[in-house]
């Protein structure tokens, strides 16, 4: 070992004959002075290995999956949240709509909106995975929400680029089987009824694949009108908006055919529900290859509609203490408006 006058090891004077840590004849190895490499290796070899780790207690975090109705408090406490209830028969395209909406927001592909957070990211990604896997297993079929795995809500919090406003939406994943049970047997599943009872936006889905085919079009239209009719048996809030959403619009050869179907269904929905303003949307979340429309067609317009601030004012509950002076109480009430 070569030690300089001040007690530190001299660089480039390593005692090891073939020091691997040498560049241009200078040892750069990161070792504590004043050791040379040989002594340093001995020092390292003498150090003890730590014992195996003991079992560690774990801290649980929010689960990130789709939310059950009894898990909504953290969402509702924080924001005025728009509750969206898409209703459609089996294979109408709800699951694909949810997944592509999430994917487009998170990938900066939904014009006008930026992703903020989701309390159900794993719920979205699981549904997307299942939809992709199923579509590969059975040709041209997207995943769907069965009665056993649906009945949950998916959360999305976004920011509108135009004015930086925050918006939260809860998408009710109502099983198509439950919708069909309602229209065919009149059986009302509690989740469906509860979701509709607090809905801000109800979307009546028309399966575009069926509606584009002249042979199956009457059925597709009738299914949606059936749903609109049974809505009268459900506790739909007065403030809830109704919209007709034509999914898989890529199956139509042109816009005209799609517009005709939308106009027909919207007119029927207006007649049977008495709703004054039924908006219509044509979307293609996941068009077939070579389709005339781009992936995600129509999603931005639909999302702008459902992400609007809810029309209703939630009931305010003020917890007051005796110590609160009157001005403070008034300020809190005024500030909540």
């Amino acid at each position: 070992m070569t030690v300089t006058d001040d007690g530190t090891a001299a660089r480039g004077k390593c005692a090891v004959a073939e020091c691997r840590a040498s560049v241009d004849g200078t040892c750069h190895r990161a070792k504590p002075s004043p050791l040379d490499c040989e002594e340093f290796e001995l020092e390292l070899a003498g150090e003890a290995t730590e014992p195996p780790p003991p079992a560690e207690p774990l801290v649980s975090l929010p689960q990130g999956r789709a939310l059950r109705p009894d898990e909504l408090a953290p969402v509702l406490r924080r924001d005025r949240t728009a509750r969206v209830v898409p209703l459609g028969v089996i294979e109408a395209g709800k699951t694909t709509l949810f997944c592509v909406l999430f994917e487009f927001v998170t990938c900066r592909r939904l014009d006008g909106w930026r992703y903020v957070e989701s309390l159900s990211t794993l719920g979205f990604t699981w549904r997307g995975h299942e939809a992709a896997a199923r579509s590969n297993r059975s040709e041209a079929t997207t995943g769907r929400t069965s009665g056993t795995v649906g009945n949950e809500l998916l959360h999305l919090r976004v920011r509108r680029v135009a004015d930086d406003a925050l918006r939260s939406v809860l998408l009710a994943d109502v099983s198509g089987e439950h919708v069909e049970a309602l229209t065919t047997e009149g059986r009302i599943e509690p989740f469906l009824s509860d979701a509709v009872a607090v809905a801000d936006h109800i979307l009546l889905l028309v399966d575009g694949e069926q509606a584009a085919n002249p042979a199956t079009r009457p059925n597709a239209v009738r299914h949606t009108i059936d749903i609109a009719q049974v809505l009268q048996e459900l506790p739909v809030p007065e403030y809830a908006t109704l919209a007709v959403v034509l999914t898989k619009v890529d199956y139509f050869p042109d816009d005209e055919g799609a517009d005709t179907v939308l106009a027909e269904v919207a007119a029927a929905v207006t007649r049977c529900t008495g709703a004054g303003d039924v908006r219509t949307f044509a979307i293609a979340a996941r068009p077939n290859s070579g389709a005339r429309v781009e992936p995600g067609h129509g999603l931005a317009a639909l999302f702008a509609h459902v992400a609007e601030k809810p029309r209703h004012a939630p009931t305010s509950v003020f917890v007051l203490s005796r110590a609160d002076p009157a001005p403070t109480i008034l300020r809190r009430i005024w500030g909540s408006r």
Binding site: V100, F104, C107, R109, A132, A133, R137, A140, P287
Partner: peptide
């Protein structure tokens, strides 16, 4: 980064990896 469901049509080859 996540590949959107929208970017591969139903039954497309890319979906193979997702099964």
């Amino acid at each position: 980064a996540h590949m959107s469901l929208a970017d591969f049509a139903p039954g497309a080859e890319q979906a193979q990896r997702l099964v």
